[in-house]
Design a protein around this nucleic acid. Structure first.
Lengths: 354, 354
DNA sequence: ATCGGTTCGGGCAACGTTTTCTACCTAATG
DNA sequence: CATTAGGTAGAAAACGTTGCCCGAACCGAT
């Protein structure tokens, strides 16, 4: 029995049918198992399938309505510390729901992002998940709104993960962190430890939504405890280690007093710690430091970094769940996930005034 | 002009054609731009496309031979420190080659891995990339061989990333790290610093190929310098921080002398560092520590961890490139990527004998 | 012996796109 | 004026699968 393997061409139902001496319909039925087929026939078909090592063509199947649907996951890049856990959540939930997960990166290019959404629309993605914040122009927002409607019209769904809603009437599933609340908690904690002069490092451009929310929490905590935010202790910067390092050095050089630092992210905090150590200051005895994000690195820093834990994996999981079952969760299409403090070794009581 | 949008159904070429008053063929041609179409006709079609917000159905397109192909990326999970950079390389190269990237995880279950390969075969994946090592049984290997052939027969390709080849005649693209060479270099470096009593932490089960290669490099470096490997300084363990910590404590308790530690991975090294610090030993003055992998964490540890850099991103990129252009790289289908030492602060001259 | 029901298998259409082949119209050329 | 070439558009087939409808065979019961 020589397998008639026309190399290069993959076998089709017809090939299997020909070998088994049945019709294509019967092969399909044996494979699907949703229709009575005589045992002997089934045997012949199965043997032919094995002989040819046949697998169905998912595209053809999808065309006719069967086959697994896909979920698209669009993100800046894969190397950021945030991605891993969100991605894990998204992938796991996607698989659990019997869907396939398509991953694309846009490297921070907003146009590329829009292009990818379009591409995923062609791919018939059942949900298109956008992760992480970014600067948003009016034109970008408008196009995004348009795409959200286009997706909605075809039974698909735009999902915003960790970024704020686009607008009121825009059909989209939004899952955010409570950035403001976490910053409030972190700052309040420092205040409760007796700190009064708390610097914030990484307050970049206010247009960036995440930055703004975290700064707002910092400011609200001050107000809630009857304190003023001192402009000299509000330092700009980007979301990287180098920025944390440089800004902290600048702060130290300026002579402005401070006993605690609230870093806008853990990565920034690692730069802050480095600068403090270099200046001979002890953490937390001389200066307390608190971060934000609770990336894996945070636990491995010395001293262990106190920070605000973000439920990354849950974010991804929730996003997919809500989007795919939006009929059952019609009212939950905008969710804000809670955050909580993780206290490690980098925070302690404020030193006594000298 | 009311758009006849039967909500729920996505528009097809026919719908566009009807609105534009042309045939489906013409719509296809306008969109593809590969056939002369009168300017006025093109205008009408484009207007209809915009009106309906039409996008082509990628599945139907794929069925007839067009559309983007996909590459499947199968990995244990997304949270390990290794994934990010390999994934980045794979995704970037995949996109650069105009393909889409499908990501799946198997959580260490070998059967699930095989199942996923099968699934990707249905998806007509142009390449199926398997990342990372794992224990391999004979049955698993055999099935893998079978799948490699099945993929090959249909013009697809099995790609092994950072794991050893399956067998000689198995059609697969293999891209590995030179694990043995890196371990040799790391150990040799320690020896050149004057260390003679070098412990290795994390020498787990010898069946694990990565572990074995790294241990072999460690052993060969000893032999090359006329040294003996002392069994008491060879410590077992798994690939996690806790294991590094526990094994180092055990080593310290045992009283066996050592001036340097070669940790099987950076994560293990972080546990080693912690145990040493706890014991009041200074790194590198009292004990030198070297890791393996060069994960991002390595630079942020205190002291900065000397380690063996693995070209993760290049691994992913190379794998895709070789697999997709295997006609041009027919002889390069098994590549071993070089590694290099990264010297940071955790290594220094051996302390003077007392 | 006829009938009704059950079990099993096949033919055909349909999914949405591209491609090949054919046909029309216009303008240029003899 | 007749012929042809070039430009433009459409009809139909094909891709591989599944679902609907129909028919054949067989069973037991009247």
């Amino acid at each position: 029995m020589v397998a008639r393997l026309s190399s290069g061409d993959r076998p089709t139902v017809k090939d299997v049918a020909a070998i088994a001496g049945v019709s294509a319909t019967t092969v399909s039925r044996v494979l699907a198992g949703n229709y009575p087929v005589a045992a002997t026939t089934r045997g012949r078909v199965m043997r032919a399938v094995q002989q040819l090592d046949y697998v169905a063509n998912a595209q053809a199947r999808a065309l006719v309505g069967g086959g697994p649907r896909t979920v698209a996951f669009i993100i800046r890049d894969l190397v950021g510390p945030l991605f891993a856990y969100i991605g894990q959540g998204v992938e796991q939930q996607t698989t659990a729901e019997g869907r396939l997960c398509l991953v694309c990166t846009h490297n921070g290019d907003p146009d590329r992002e829009l292009e990818l959404i379009e591409l995923m629309r062609e791919q018939q993605a059942e949900a298109v998940v956008l992760v992480g914040g970014g600067v948003r122009t009016a034109a970008h927002l408008e196009r995004m709104t348009q795409l959200a409607h286009a997706l909605d019209r075809t039974g698909s769904r735009l999902v915003l993960c960790g970024r704020p809603p686009i607008g009121a009437d825009v059909p989209a599933t939004v899952v955010e962190y409570d950035n403001e609340g976490g910053a409030f908690a972190a700052t309040s904690y420092l205040i409760s430890l007796g700190h009064r002069d708390i610097a914030i490092v990484g307050r970049g451009e206010p247009a960036h939504t995440t930055t703004k929310a975290r700064f707002d929490g910092y400011a609200r905590a001050h107000k809630a405890h009857g304190l003023e935010v001192a402009e000299q202790r509000v330092l700009p910067g980007t979301y990287d280690r180098e920025s944390g390092y440089q800004q902290t050095k600048a702060l130290l050089d300026s002579g402005v007093p401070f006993t605690a630092v609230f870093a806008i992210t853990d990565v920034v905090a690692s730069g802050v710690l480095f600068a403090l150590r270099e200046a001979g200051l002890r953490v937390p005895e001389d200066v307390s430091v608190i971060g934000y994000d609770d990336i894996p690195l945070a636990a491995d820093l010395v001293p262990g970094l106190s920070t605000v834990h973000l439920p990354h994996e849950e974010l991804g999981r929730t996003a997919i769940r809500l989007a795919l079952h939006r009929d059952q969760h019609a009212l939950d299409q905008h969710v804000v996930l809670g955050t909580h403090l993780v206290i490690r070794e980098s925070t302690g009581p404020a030193p006594h005034k000298q």
